[in-house]
Amino acid sequence: MEVAVDIKDLTVAYGDKPVLWDVDLQVPRGVLMAIVGPNGAGKTTLLKAMLGLVRPAAGSVRVFGRPYHQQRHLIAYVPQRSSVDWDFPTTVLDVVLMGRYGHLGWFRRPGRAERDAALAALAQVQMADFAHRQIGQLSGGQQQRVFLARALAQAAEIYVMDEPFQGVDAVTERAIINVLRDLRAAGKTVVVVHHDLQTVTEYFDHVALINVRRIAAGPVAEVFTEANLRATYGGRLALLHTPTDTAPAARPTPAPGD
């Protein structure tokens, strides 16, 4: 099993409060992994550490065996929608083109090839018709798909996403999960901070349970257990239906989680 991302002893602190503490996590190549945990438990920080956006107090992140800053071109990032100002004067196509900037380097401008790649990425998320729309005119789900298309345009090996399903409509949710499955089928590795415990078993094959520390990680069937969930969420969890009893194809009954 090749390891796509190898995180060792990762500790990130803001001031004297640890947000992530001594986290070890191996993301095997080719999986669709969910990162779940309560709010403020360090999930976004874990993603950002993977991308070199925060400096850890200790520990390391290696991508395919090398330090991440040597492998940036292999990782694509889909941030939370709230991280940008959607009133910015730019079109959908422009945003997706930005995904190609890593390939262009310093002085080259996007040309025909880049445009085609961007349009292809938009087609993958069914947003090709919106190419010349200003981004503020999109719905939340459409904005999310644009961010996803931007990541697809990067043609990376590893895709790292922060709550892509948060607050999107059903059409978008379907579109996104289809893209993720296509990526996995193509041998890519996908890591997703996921907010909805209900859909973990349906969408993902691996899961990491994080609450400042790594509680458990591995294949969903083995790791996504009641005991582990209780350990992750403390007492703030009411399970009406044990997740591991669910047949993979069926949708679990509502199990409120944090």
């Binding site: 956006l53 940008v84 945003v95 401008r109």
Partner: peptide
């Protein structure tokens, strides 16, 4: 003007730019 793509990118989404290594 010379660095237009980078300037535009950073004005819009600095985190994404950082992740690209800009």
């Amino acid at each position: 003007l010379i660095f237009w793509p980078q300037v535009k990118l950073i004005s819009f989404d600095p985190d994404f730019a950082r992740s690209l290594g800009v």
